[in-house]
Design a protein around this nucleic acid. Structure first.
Lengths: 140, 140
DNA sequence: AAGATTGTTGACATATTCTCTCGGCTATGA
DNA sequence: TCATAGCCGAGAGAATATGTCAACAATCTT
């Protein structure tokens, strides 16, 4: 029950893009100053682009930009794009995937938990992450 | 962002124990009728015992029983015992673990998310899982 | 037009973690 | 005393995560 680096670095990259939003396209090379390997950033940004969260500009002086305002991008979207759909088990969204073993008294609960989880993640915007990060606390 | 089989099977085992609570100690052999391998159940139940969620009775006619009523055992405790503490990243509970890379504007958010998550999981009792499972829906 | 810059893609290597499996041990009841 | 059960640690094989790399395509600058 821990995120992978893909999710964490992906979110870190989005925070970086938001903070440098006024500087035009940000290249992977520049983003790598965060400490994330350049070659790995390639994969992360490709996933974020496929998720429609960033726009890519190719060629010299190119780079990446957020496709929407930070207030319109949620943590749930970012994690979804980088880690795949957030769910506790396959039963939650696909009852057919429910193996004999799980005996699925639990299916309704998995479904409920996944819903609550997604509501939670979709309730946090990139803008809020940054605001709370700067203040060092969380707004209620 | 998916549970491992340890968490899912562990919960399934707890549901099984709750359903057979009146039959005295339940052996691993009997539990294996759920389809979970006997040798794997050993590990799962050992973890649940260390977490204080089940009592073991050794020797012939021995087996396992819930240590408390199903209404007093939460999904959060079960997943905590089998999967380890539920947290999104180490930053959430241990600020020192926060690497340079994460740049931790995100630390307050991880902390907030972990708290919400744990509240959610601790709000669901084993009793409720079973009740909803039988009814085929979730009580609100 | 040429060359430098930057994103795009797919394949691969290594490390880590998961998912069991096994063997030997200890405790208890018949 | 023996059969039944739990207890423990080690380890095998598979799957997944975490990068690395190389060749390619698009765009800008000169």
């Amino acid at each position: 029950m821990k995120l992978t680096t893909k999710g964490r670095y992906g979110l870190a990259a989005m925070v970086y893009l938001a903070r440098h939003a006024t500087e035009g396209p940000i290249s992977l090379r520049q983003m790598s100053e965060t400490g994330i390997q350049l070659d790995y950033l390639e994969q992360l940004l490709a996933a974020l682009r496929r998720g429609g969260l960033v726009n890519a500009i190719r060629g010299a002086q190119g780079g990446y930009q957020l496709s929407r305002a930070p207030a319109e991008i949620t943590v749930g979207e970012i994690l979804g794009a980088t880690e795949g759909p957030v769910r506790f088990c396959d039963c939650a969204t696909d009852a057919a995937a429910c193996s004999q073993r799980d005996h699925c008294d639990m299916q309704p609960m998995w479904h409920y938990l996944s819903d609550q989880m997604n509501d939670l993640l979709d309730g946090i915007t990139l803008e809020k992450v940054i605001a709370d990060g700067q203040r060092g606390g969380n707004t209620p």
